[in-house]
């Protein structure tokens, strides 16, 4: 039997800007918080109105099981996120989840997280959960952004005892260049597992490097979504073995080898 998905009209408990155009929204959603696993996402939408029409997918940034709430971190890029941003504490949004696949536990003792832009939220949640495990694990987080002003989640990663290394397009913080430039060194001389989330070009580069470096790699993909639950078949990506996989149900977290990166 499939696990239940909660559909809630959740109260906004807190909503604040963490960087220009980047917001963290806290929702009162005990059932979702209890079931949430790193890599999973929720669908969010205003309760009223038909424009924008479709819900938007946002990764779970933090789940507070005791407190019964979840946090989402998003960047305002278009009508859906603009509408969400208008929801002040006390108002409600429609939200359903937790949805999709989760990151699987690493085999070795080093974890390398690779995040670009708003791909960072699920990696922060993963770092927090890994830090709570009893097994000692070295966590290196490679974080890329356009510039210093759009770096998010860094403090949370450090609090989760991750060794954070930064790359920015304009060199305003950390190394100037792509976050993937930092990857070969990070996986060196250890049994590492790579977990990545970010823009598709970045994921393609990580998948290629993961293969070259012979390192197990899991990647959280994005795709335009209508339903988020597997019904519309709108969110598909090409499978290596042929046919398509739904990002919302078989994903968003995929093993490197299951995706046909050439045609994606």
């Amino acid at each position: 039997m499939p696990e239940a998905i909660e559909l809630l009209h959740a109260e906004v408990l807190d909503h604040h800007e963490v960087a220009p155009d980047h917001w963290v929204i806290t929702l009162d959603a005990p059932e979702i918080a209890a079931g949430a696993r790193p890599g999973q996402f929720v669908m969010v939408r205003g309760i009223q109105g038909t424009d924008p029409l479709l819900p938007r997918a946002l990764s779970i940034y933090h789940a507070d099981v005791e407190g019964g709430c979840i946090e989402l971190l998003y960047r305002v890029v278009g009508p859906g996120t603009t509408r969400l941003q208008e929801h002040e504490p006390g108002r409600r949004v429609a939200v359903w989840g937790p949805l999709g696949s989760q990151f699987r536990l690493p085999e070795g003792d080093r974890v390398v997280l690779v995040g670009g832009g708003v791909g960072v939220p699920p990696l922060v949640f993963w770092a927090e959960r890994l830090a709570a495990l009893s097994v000692p694990m070295e966590v290196i987080a490679l974080i890329g952004a356009q510039s210093e002003s759009s770096l998010v989640g860094i403090d949370r990663l450090r609090r989760a005892r991750a060794n954070v290394r930064i790359a920015t397009d304009d060199g305003s913080q950390g190394r100037k260049g792509y976050v993937t430039d930092l990857l070969p060194q990070a996986v060196q001389s250890a049994r590492a597992t790579i977990y990545a989330c970010g823009p598709t070009p970045m994921l393609k580069a990580v998948a290629r490097l993961g293969k070259t470096l012979e390192t197990p790699t899991e990647l959280a993909l994005e795709a335009p979504m209508a339903c988020g639950v597997g019904a519309c078949l709108g969110c598909t990506v090409p499978r290596r073995e042929g046919g398509f996989a739904r990002v919302c149900t078989e994903g968003p977290v995929f093993d490197r080898d299951s995706i046909d990166w050439e045609t994606l």
């Binding site: 038909t50 424009d51 924008p52 029409l53 479709l54 335009p224 979504m225 209508a226 519309c232 078949l233 709108g234 969110c235 598909t236 090409p238 042929g242 046919g243 398509f244 045609t263």
Partner: peptide, 16 residues
């Protein structure tokens, strides 16, 4: 049928 490649859905004003 495997379905179409590429982007399969796009939102429009109060529709898709």
């Amino acid at each position: 049928r495997p379905g179409n490649a590429g982007v399969r859905i796009v939102e429009t004003p109060s529709g898709m």
